[in-house]
């Protein structure tokens, strides 16, 4: 490969302390993800998948070890820089969509652009473009409640795309969707990946994971297996 990894984890551990009880969610993860990769993370419930995603997403800090995004070590960054990193480099897709219920599709997609302080882009045009891309050009003024689950997740993906991210993090994006809709969403993600965006996806469904080039299996806070599919 030879290319510098876009995501790099070195001996990353995460320990949650609840009272006098300690939960070792991650026990020392070493991981490199190259730019443009499409990775699926699988594993039993509680094995630490979401914990890792939150660390990659700069939403949380590891207990020990080093997590680097595009070469920047997250533990050395200030909160405002982390916010800017999330805004410019990362895009999140959640299992429960996490759309603002009172805002329509267009407003939801524009939300991250409000916090974009470096580039001066036409937020409205960019949001429309993203909604077109996910196939919701006709539904821009619909509120989440007026959309199906699959459509809501498309809005969420459009929102993740708005800031032109390098990485999309999707934690069980199809977890709340039926098989057919899941496949549609996965095809959308594949096409985004084809345009160069690095995608990391957590899923419990093998058929969903099949869309990825690389499958990582977690068990008890450790990587159990890491397989690349020849494409």
């Amino acid at each position: 490969m030879g290319q510098a990894p876009i995501i790099e984890a070195r001996q990353v551990t995460k320990v949650y302390t609840m009272g006098d009880q300690k939960v070792h969610a991650l026990r020392g993860i070493d991981l490199e993800i190259a730019p443009g990769e499409f990775t699926a993370i699988m594993g039993p419930s509680g094995s630490g998948k979401s914990t890792l995603m939150n660390l990659i997403g700069a939403l949380d800090q590891p207990t020990s070890g080093d997590m680097r995004i595009e070469g920047h070590s997250l533990s050395t960054m200030r909160p405002d820089d982390l916010a800017d990193l999330r805004n410019r480099t990362l895009g999140f897709v959640f299992q429960q969509f996490n759309l603002l219920p009172r805002a329509n599709a267009l407003q939801n997609v524009k939300l991250p652009l409000r916090y974009a302080r470096h580039e001066h882009i036409d937020a409205d045009a960019r949001a429309r473009e993203c909604l077109e891309l996910v196939g919701l050009g006709e539904r821009m003024d619909h509120r989440p409640a007026q959309l199906s689950g699959g459509q809501q997740q498309r809005v969420a993906i459009a929102r993740a795309l708005a800031g032109k991210p390098h990485i999309i993090l999707a934690d069980e994006p199809t977890g709340a969707l039926d098989t057919k809709t899941s496949a549609d969403i996965m095809e959308l993600l594949v096409s985004l990946n084809a345009s160069g965006i690095t995608i990391i996806l957590v899923t419990h469904e093998p058929e969903v994971a099949e869309f990825a080039q690389r499958q990582i299996h977690f068990r008890d806070g450790l990587i159990e297996s890491d397989e690349r599919r020849a494409s």
């Binding site: 939403l59 800017d84 805004n87 999140f92 939300l111 991250p112």
Partner: peptide
């Protein structure tokens, strides 16, 4: 709270 968390995930700074 969740909305605030979402906004932060989308890149809102504390000051925002």
């Amino acid at each position: 709270t969740r909305e605030i968390g979402l906004r932060m995930a989308l890149g809102a700074r504390g000051s925002d």
